[in-house]
Design a protein around this nucleic acid. Structure first.
Lengths: 190, 190
DNA sequence: GTCTATACCTGGATAGAC
DNA sequence: GTCTATCCAGGTATAGAC
């Protein structure tokens, strides 16, 4: 997202507000206040609120792809790449304890709304799933790569949900430790 | 909930709709249609929409306590009781794949809304947490009982979230299998 | 490209008849 | 205890001036 344009500011503000407050609960007034524009001005940039959500998801997909590429380029060994994935629970723990996982909570909300952008949002999970699966394949676990990827995704989602409910830092650290041990046991050839 | 009264019907319908559509997305019109009463009639039974949510949570807490007592009375050994907990992922898999876990998704939504009933909803998780912890204590894992309970809760939440996203029955069965294996490894003295 | 003003609707909530 | 009628706030969306 090239910084500067009003459209970009709208997407950025909407992204944060959708994460913190939920999509449905966030009104144009909220976004307008955050960006510092008038409500009427939205419709020069987007036709509907759903369009803003669509742009937010496109933005998140791009950011996610970039993050995965980053983890890949800065970690030679797939084992360390997967550890980088696990580590986001620690790196983002403050935000996760406050608002949950941005991917999981968005997909859950859109599922309840039976929203048209549900499939697009689910693609966020699919990105992680595919990427993790490829790392497990590289580690010689080709046959179970997808199952291992799904298990790791599920583990991180569960930690995020309970971290959000109980706001317990020690719990998050303990579970991250456990996930690291699980990973080491699954790919001992490291 | 004694069957029969209009108030009970409202709570029951609201419970289901809050689960399927989310709390905020469910309007009085939705509930009125489901129960077959007029909108104005609500206010004879409840002062506000929040009051309906409060009644729904009270109802869910009672049902949960009953379910836990049931698992306890119909399973002599704590190991089997914990297995009963894990098994709800299988028993309720159709609903979970459609709408997620009723506890996890409600707590997540209320957290985003910063809703006054957040603490009451979180108590649902606390019921499971305490009950599971007591079972692990009975199994001789007193020191780590709460951590084991939290881990199991997190596992089931993660499975529910991804089941909701990907609607994959095989995934749920695989993860339940895995949870059973984990349990057997944690309490081998069974 | 941004603003103000406003239309239109939905949703929660109230009043009062029956 | 249930209904109809209605109020009011807030939310999305539009029109049109600047």
């Amino acid at each position: 997202m090239a910084d500067g344009t009003t459209r970009d500011h709208i997407v950025k503000a909407a992204d944060e507000l959708f994460y913190r407050q939920g999509y449905e609960h966030t009104s144009f007034a909220h976004i307008a206040d955050a960006v510092g524009i008038s409500r009427g001005n939205f419709y020069h940039h987007f036709k509907t609120k759903d369009d803003i959500l669509g742009a937010v998801i496109v933005e998140r997909l791009a950011n996610t792809r970039e993050m995965l590429a980053q983890w890949e380029s800065s970690n030679e060994h797939p084992f360390d790449r997967i550890r980088a994935f696990i580590h986001i629970l620690i790196a983002n723990r403050t935000e996760i304890m406050r608002h949950g996982c941005p991917v999981g909570t968005l997909c859950a909300e859109l599922a309840k709304l039976e929203h048209a952008s549900q499939a697009a949002a689910n693609e966020l999970f699919t990105l992680f799933r595919g990427w993790l699966g490829r790392q497990f394949t590289l580690l010689g676990r080709e046959a179970e790569a997808d199952a291992l990827a799904m298990h790791l995704l599920a583990s991180s989602q569960g930690v995020a949900t309970l971290a959000n409910t109980f706001r317990d830092t020690a719990f998050v650290e303990r579970e991250v430790e456990r996930m690291g041990a699980w990973l080491a046991a699954e790919v001992p050839q490291h």
